[in-house]
Design a protein around this nucleic acid. Structure first.
Lengths: 337, 337
DNA sequence: CGGTTTTATTAAACCGGTTTAATGATAAAG
DNA sequence: CTTTATCATTAAACCGGTTTAATAAAACCG
């Protein structure tokens, strides 16, 4: 690989001149420009992004830290979210460094990555990385809330308590008091939040939660989210008397729908289903179409990217944003009489 | 941000020593190690990945070039593929630099990216980037075939002609000679290949293609793949006499299924559907479950990553691999009598 | 105890760019 | 025809690490 020095020598100019020809930051006579460009082509010279980054302290790359399990595929939520980040970054000339690597225990290995800022998905409780990025002065935006709360860090989040509440309220208004909630995995904070919101809805309506049953997704028991929806319904219908189901994702709802078909349950006449949707297209593609709460994962991603890019420009910015979920009425729910 | 120099000075050692403490490439006395580490902590020193990369000419990052349209979401195929690449890279300690940026016209802007190798999705005809990576001596693996063929470049590909042939043969064996092929967008090479394979199947069976109708996806006419499947079926059923449909993706098939429900067509009794599936899970989640050809997008991605990592170790390697598609019989097809 | 080997440490060169301050040439102004 | 301002160009310092060759100190050996 030819370097800027090779080009400079062969073109009989200084490396600073070659640099200027390529960066166009300083005027260079057309004569010299042409000569340098010709030599560069002959030597197959391409500027080195790394060396450049080192000098100008800028990479035009955004880091995206996203914990992904070794065995399982990304969830629809994650896919949509990445989508949003990429789309926004791409629009503004940034590339995305996807980092799904598990963290090394040895603090010696923490390094300043080749990025201008970082978006971090699902920070853990007391996440040490948050402080580390502060020390590094790397702009950081979380997707999800810092725990414990820290108002000096930027984050974008759903209000999952509100989401749970919203769904609960909707179902209660429609006369459903016996509900099966197919919740996310119990180690996820979103699962706890949504559950709390749902309970709050029951409380504020003065309805007992005695007919509210909450189940949790478990990688051990369930092959995939659809399977979770399928077996949960198959195993519980008949034993329990619920009139409505809340499914953690579209895929879970899909599995539940499959089960209802096999059991001969008519949706929504005999059973109402509402999905927490991470894939707005899929929710419209089922039959019946799913009444769902749009989590707007893609919006979450693009808003995080927008905020980060703002913070890269001006590190001083501190801002949080809660993305509201929208309840979209389609065909899978009905008033219980 | 503290640098290695700051640490060296304050600890009263040379920068080479600090470097050795962090890289552990050279033995350093425990006494010095501790002192350096203490100072590093006090100054919040973190090694700079960029500077390191420049010196050792290695980034542990793999570039993934993937053209994504500004307005539309990633297809299931792309998602699965990225998934495969990420999973494999992550397993081996590499991160992935996602590059969806459109190429700049000005050749001045081509640079050696901060990556150890590149995976490029869907190279264009006469793609100038292929030669450029050769000149840069950057390991490159294509997903899709180089056009014109170049046996010196590494690539991983489906055999789309064979896929078309396979599906055609299966349907013909089952007595279907009137077929509607909901093909991909006509500007995609895969669309042409699959169509060719399908025609070849007809030919070799000695069946006239007069009742074979091929449609193409068009971003202008169709909101999304599902919508494409839906309207295509709604508009054509009755006018045409096909007994089987080939859907370009699971989502297209999903739309078609939706239409059949509304039209009261019973699958597979009145109409057979086979999907070219990029989402193996989804194909099992529809009702009826889709008989489909698994494109194995994730496998494509992980194989590309494997090959690239091999090539990064040994640049001399030249290897191509064709991933076979598997026809999986489920519930959406039946013998036509 | 002197000579050889081993070990930890360092100074300096290097990776491939950018940028500042200085310089010489050219154009504009008086 | 000076004097001054403008312009293209350059040498050298710099970004923050790694690595090589040299060196001083400690360990080994007969």
């Amino acid at each position: 690989m030819a370097t800027i020095n090779d080009v400079a020598k062969m073109a009989g100019v200084s490396k600073g001149t070659v640099s200027s020809v390529f960066s166009k930051k300083r005027p260079i006579s057309t004569e010299v420009t042409e000569r340098v460009l010709a030599v560069a082509k002959e030597l197959s010279y391409f500027p080195n992004h790394i060396a450049r980054s080192l000098a100008i302290k800028k990479t035009m790359i955004v880091g995206l830290k996203i914990p992904i399990s070794r065995e399982h595929a990304m969830s629809g939520f994650e896919v949509q979210l990445i989508n949003g980040v990429i789309r926004e970054c791409s629009k503004r000339g940034y590339r995305v460094l996807l980092d799904t690597l598990p963290e090394h225990d040895d603090p010696i290995h923490f390094a300043v990555d080749p990025v201008d800022g970082v978006i971090m998905l699902n920070p853990r409780t007391q996440d040490p990385r948050i402080d580390r990025y502060k020390l590094m002065q790397t702009p950081l935006v979380l997707i999800g809330r810092p725990d414990p709360m820290d108002e000096t860090v930027c984050y974008i989040d759903n209000d999952n308590v509100k989401i749970g509440n919203q769904v609960g309220q909707y179902l209660l208004e429609n006369g459903h008091t016996s509900i099966l909630f197919l919740n996310a995995s119990s180690d996820m904070t979103v699962a706890a939040d949504r559950k709390r919101g749902l309970y709050e809805a029951f409380e504020s309506s003065g309805v007992s939660t005695e007919h509210l049953k909450v189940m949790h997704y478990s990688r051990k028991q369930h092959r995939n989210p659809t399977h979770y929806g399928y077996v949960s319904l198959k195993n519980s219908y008949g034993n329990h008397d619920y009139t409505a189901i809340i499914a953690d994702t579209d895929r879970v709802a899909l599995g539940a729908l499959q089960a209802t078909r096999e059991l001969g349950i008519v949706i929504p006449e005999q059973l109402s289903i509402v999905a927490l949707s991470d894939d707005p297209v899929l929710a419209q593609e089922t039959s019946p179409k799913l009444t769902s709460v749009e989590l707007s994962a893609e919006l979450l991603g693009s808003e995080a990217a927008k905020l980060l890019l703002k913070k890269i420009k001006n590190i001083g910015i501190v801002q949080q944003k809660v993305i509201d979920a929208k309840l979209i009425l389609r065909e899978s729910c009905k008033m219980y009489v």
